[in-house]
Amino acid sequence: MKKRRGVYNKWAKTVVLNKKASIRSHVPHTLLFSEYSLRKMLHLYHMVYVKPNKGSHGVGVMRVESNNGTYSYQIGAKRKSNLSWAQLTASLKRKIDNTTYIVQRGIHLSRYKNRIYDLRVVLQLNESRAWQITGIVARVAKPGMAVTNGAQGADTHTFESVIAAQGGTELVERLRAEFHNVCIDCAHLLYAKYPYLNELGFDIALDHQMHPWILEVNTTPEATPFRKLANKSMYNRMMQLRRLNARRS
């Protein structure tokens, strides 16, 4: 199978998505990292995520918080607290070095069994070259972790089981319809800019009001979370379309 072409610049993808107002309300406020942008975002939101612009698997992602004049941050399971501004920025800059990072508004995630979770929604071009949702799965973080990536130990659950526990089948159907509208709109925007794309993986957070936030769009998403489910129908469909799109690309 041919190597899939992707877009790995998170900032560039964010700029594309923010062009449409109906999508903008689902994209957390994001800026390129600097000491000034970090201070501004912490003043606005008190909790932010600092991410490598071209990273993956949650590696290097830091959760940063301000609390009454002191600061803390968490990377993986390690947390540093009660830092001054000078201590915070010096520590972050050592980790960032000369790499480009972004600062993203932190979303306080909904919880499942007292663990944060997000959703991975996969879209692919189907036989008619139309964008189609081929899979939705929930990723539930390890206790104490600030990220939900499988590479960081998150567990995989069906979308229906996690969301039904929050609000029953009515919430499951409402969110499914909302993901269909928002994600397909996003796919059209990204495809217009990057016409070689044929597969997208949306990392979607739900806040406490169950409002969906697009944390990231992966242009070469892994099918691994879907392979872990007992029912392999979504995984099989993804691989079928992946093979088809590899042949015609």
Rank of each mutant, 00 (worst) to 15 (best):
H108T: 08
I116M: 12
Q209D: 10
I204Y: 05
A164I: 01
P195W: 03
I107M: 08
L197F: 06
A187N: 05
K113Q: 14
R94W: 04
A192V: 01
Q104D: 06
R174C: 03
E160G: 09
R115I: 00
E127F: 05
S233D: 13
D185A: 14
G153S: 05
V162H: 12
G153P: 08
A146F: 07
Y196A: 00
V121L: 01
V147Y: 04
A141P: 10
G106L: 09
A138Y: 12
R105Y: 01
S128G: 02
Y117A: 01
D118H: 02
L229K: 06
G150Y: 01
I116F: 03
H108F: 04
E216A: 03
F226S: 09
T220V: 14
G168D: 00
M145E: 15
L200I: 07
I184T: 15
R176F: 04
G150D: 03
Q132A: 08
L123V: 07
L123C: 15
D155K: 14
T219C: 13
L92F: 10
K113Y: 02
N231H: 13
T156P: 06
T156R: 11
T158F: 06
Y196S: 03
N98L: 12
Y101V: 02
V172R: 06
A90Y: 09
L190A: 06
G153A: 09
H208R: 11
L171Y: 02
V140Q: 11
V140P: 08
N114T: 07
L119C: 13
K95F: 11
A90V: 00
D207P: 02
K142H: 13
K142F: 08
I102H: 11
K232I: 04
I184W: 12
T89Y: 04
V137D: 07
V137F: 10
R105H: 09
I204G: 07
V182R: 03
N98S: 14
G144I: 10
S110P: 01
E178L: 12
N181L: 11
R227I: 03
G153D: 04
D155M: 12
I204H: 10
V122R: 03
I116A: 07
V182W: 05
I116W: 02
Y112N: 01
E173Y: 15
T148R: 05
T158H: 11
Q166V: 00
A192R: 15
H211N: 12
T156D: 10
Y101M: 01
I184P: 11
T220F: 00
V162S: 10
L190S: 05
R120S: 02
V182L: 07
